[in-house]
Design a protein around this nucleic acid. Structure first.
Lengths: 214, 214, 214, 214
DNA sequence: ATCTAATCGAGACGGTACGTCTCGTCTTATG
DNA sequence: CATAAGACGAGACGTACCGTCTCGATTAGAT
C-alpha cells in the first residue's frame, strides 16, 4: 500500500533534473505538452493526438492535460497555433487588389507548400464535433483573421478603391470561403493560380461590363 | 465467479421463439440499417452513429455492416442522403440573378430551418478525418451539385447575362463557399438575408462603377 | 483554453481573512486529522480513508500527513485506536472460566453490537497488504491483549485451575482465533452464544471423559 | 475516425496464429489470464494483480477481464485456486488424533514451506475489502474445507473417540483459527511444532485431570 | 519584541489503476 | 453459406489516489 519504502534515498542534483515524480514548473510542462502534441499532429494526424499518447510523449500526466485542456482537439489546436505563429498582419501597399492577392497567395501557399493542408482540414473537421475546439478555432484564429482583412478593406473603401456600399464581411467570406470550399467540401486540388481570378471576381464580378445594381 | 458459467444453459423453445438469428433478405437489412443510422444521426448526432449501436438498433449484425460500409461515417452519409432525397434540379427562369438567389435561398433555408445544419456540419467534419466519407460526400453530393450550378451559369454566359471570360467554378465556390465559411470555419449565424448581397457581389463585384479589368 | 491562466489573480485582503494557510499547532492538526480519519473510517469504510480525502476533511495538508503517517492504513489504525480507547484490563474474579467467558463475551459484543466488526475486519484486511499497519496492529493491539490474557491464565495455573503443562498462548490463540476465523476466513455470523462452548472446549476438550494425555 | 484505412492488407496463415486482433476461443483466453494472474500473484503479490497488468501479460483485453471477473481480487483468488489444486480429502486412519495432526501439519507446511503464506494472507486481506473475493474464498475454499473436517470429526464421534456432545464446528474453528490468528492478527512466526499441542488442547483441554463439565 | 527558520495549507505534477466505451476482427450457432 | 449474436484485442476516455514537490503564509523559537 505504501510504495515509498525507498523514501529518503536522496537524489543527486544531476539526476534530479528529470526525476519523474513530483512537480515540474507549469510553464515547462505546458511547453513539453504543446511540443509533443504538435509533433504528433504533424506526423500522425489529428486522430493520433490523444491525451494518453501526448501524456506519454510529453513525459506528462493525463491529470495535467485534463486540468488544462477540455479535449484532445482543443489541445491539438493550441499546439498548432503555437507551431504556426506566423504573421497575421495584413499588408497595406495602397493597392487593395495587390494586397488581397498577396494575402490570399500567402494563405494558399501556406496550405499547399508548408504541409498545413492536412492539419488544418483535420482540425476544422474535428471542430465540427468538438464545441470547445470550434470555439478555440473561430475565436483565436478565424474571426481575428477576418477582422484584419475587414479593416484593410475598410481602408480601401475610404480610399475609393471599393464602393461605399460594399459588404466587407461578404467579400472576405467569398475569398477565403472559396478556398475552404475546395479544401473541405469539394476536396479538389487547387493552387495559387486560383487567387488572382478570385480577387478579380470579388472586385469586378461576372456581369457584363456596364451592368450594375439598379 | 465466472459470470458466464451459466452460459449454454440453453434457451427454452418458448422464449427463443423468434430471436432473429439466421439470415434475413439483404434488402430488408439494408433498409433497416439505413433507417436506424439516419434516426441516430438526427437524434444524437454523428458521434452516436456507431457500428455497435446501429447494429443493435437495426437488429442487424456488425459483420453485415462491415461488409457493406467501410466506416460509420460512410454509413451515416449514406443514411443522410437517403433521408434528404431532395431535388437537385437547378431552376432556369431565364434570369440568372433570380435563379441563383432562389437556389442559394433554398440551400440556406434547408440548413437553417430544416435542422440540417448540425448533421451537415458534423458529416463534413467527420469527412476531414475519414477519406471514405470525404469521397462519398464530394462524389455523391458536392461535385454533382457544383456541376449543375456550373451548367446553369454556362447558359447564362451564352445568354449574355455573364461575361464570356467568367470563371464559372469560381463563382460557385464563392457563393456556396461563403456559406460554408460561416458554417464551418467562423461558426457565426447567418440567414437567407445574406443571399441577395452574396449574389450581387458575385455579379457586380465591389470595385467602383466603371472600374474593370484592364 | 488554459483554465488556470486566471491563476495568480490574487485574493483580496478581505476574503483572505482566515483561509487556513500557514501553520497551525501540531497537536491541533493531529487531533483534527485523527478525528477526520476516524469519522471517514466508520462512515465509509477503510477504502475511503485516503490521504487526499483526510487532508481535505481535516483542513490539513497531504504534506503533513506524509510526515506523520507512513500510509493511510496506519493512519486509519491510529484513528481507530483513538476512538476505541476501551479498557483492556482482564477481570480476575478468581474463577478462570467465568473470567474468560466475561472477556470473550465483551469482545464478541464489541464486534457485533458496537459496529466494530466492519472497521476491525477492514483494518485487519488492509494490514495484510500494508506492513506498517500490520506492525501497528499487532504491537499496539493484538500482542498486548494476548499478553494480558496470558497473565490471567498464568494466575489460573498457579491457582490450580489449569494444568501445569498448559500452553497458555495456544489457549489464547484458540479462543480468539476461533472468533477471527469466523470473522475473517469463513465470514459466517456468530454471536456471544458461541463463547461458553468455546471456553468449555478450551478447558475440557472433546475427548471422552477419562481420556487424557499419555 | 476510421482507423482501418489499412484494411484488407491481408495476413499470411503463419502470422495469423497470434495476430492480436479478433477473437480467441474463450477457454484459451481463460487459461492465459489465470496463468498470468497466478504468476503475478506469486511473484509480485496481490497489489500487482491489476486488470491492466494481467491484460497486458495475458495478451488479453480488459473488456474480457471485466466480463468474467468482478474485481482483480476475485481473479487473483481464482488464479490461486487453479494453481493450488491440492487434495482436500481428509485422511481417515481410524485415529482422530493422528488424522487431525496430519491434516493440520499439511496445512502449516503448505503455508510455511511452499510459499503460500504471503498469497494466502494477502488474499484473505483483500477479501476484507472486496465482498466478491470474500464470497469466493469462503464458498470455494474455507467452508468446504471446514465441512470435510467436520465430517471426519463426526465419524470420530460415532467411533467414541470424541464425546457425543462435542461441538464439531468449534473444534475446527479452534484448530485452524489458532493458525490464522497467528498468521493474520498477531503476525508471529509459527511452525508445525505447534500442531501437536494444538490438537491435544482440542482433545483434552487445559483443566486439571478429572475436572469436567458439570 | 523582532527576526528568522521551520512548518503548515494548498495544490500541481508524474504515475498508474480504475471501469467504460468503441472499433474492427473473428467465432459460433442458426436458419 | 450468409446472417445474427457477440466475444475478443486494442486502446482512448475521464476519474481517483498515491507520493513528490513547489509555493506562499504563518507561527515558533532564537535573538
Amino acid at each position: 500500500m505504501n510504495k515509498s519504502s525507498i523514501k529518503g534515498v536522496g537524489m543527486s542534483e544531476e539526476t534530479a533534473a528529470r526525476r519523474g515524480r513530483g512537480r515540474r514548473p507549469a510553464a515547462e510542462v505546458r511547453a513539453a505538452v504543446l511540443a509533443a502534441a504538435g509533433r504528433i499532429l504533424l506526423q500522425d494526424g489529428m486522430q493520433a493526438v490523444t491525451f494518453d499518447r501526448v501524456a506519454v510523449e510529453a513525459g506528462s500526466s493525463k491529470t495535467t492535460l485534463y486540468k488544462w485542456w477540455p479535449s484532445p482537439g482543443v489541445l491539438a489546436a493550441e499546439a498548432y497555433f503555437a507551431l504556426s505563429r506566423r504573421t497575421l498582419e495584413f499588408p497595406d501597399t495602397g493597392d487593395i487588389r495587390a494586397d488581397l492577392i498577396a494575402q490570399l497567395t500567402a494563405f494558399v501557399r501556406y496550405l499547399k507548400e508548408e504541409g498545413a493542408e492536412k492539419p488544418v482540414s483535420e482540425l476544422l473537421g474535428a471542430a465540427q464535433l468538438d464545441p470547445g475546439l470550434a470555439r478555440a478555432w473561430s475565436e483565436s484564429y478565424a474571426l481575428p483573421r477576418r477582422a484584419l482583412a475587414r479593416e484593410r478593406l475598410r481602408v480601401a473603401v475610404r480610399q475609393g478603391q471599393l464602393r461605399e456600399d460594399a459588404d466587407l464581411d461578404i467579400i472576405v467570406d467569398q475569398l477565403w470561403g472559396a478556398c475552404y470550399h475546395r479544401l473541405l467540401v469539394l476536396r479538389v486540388p487547387f493552387d495559387e493560380s486560383l487567387v488572382e481570378r478570385l480577387v478579380d471576381q470579388a472586385l469586378y464580378g461576372s456581369a457584363p461590363h456596364g451592368a450594375h445594381l439598379s
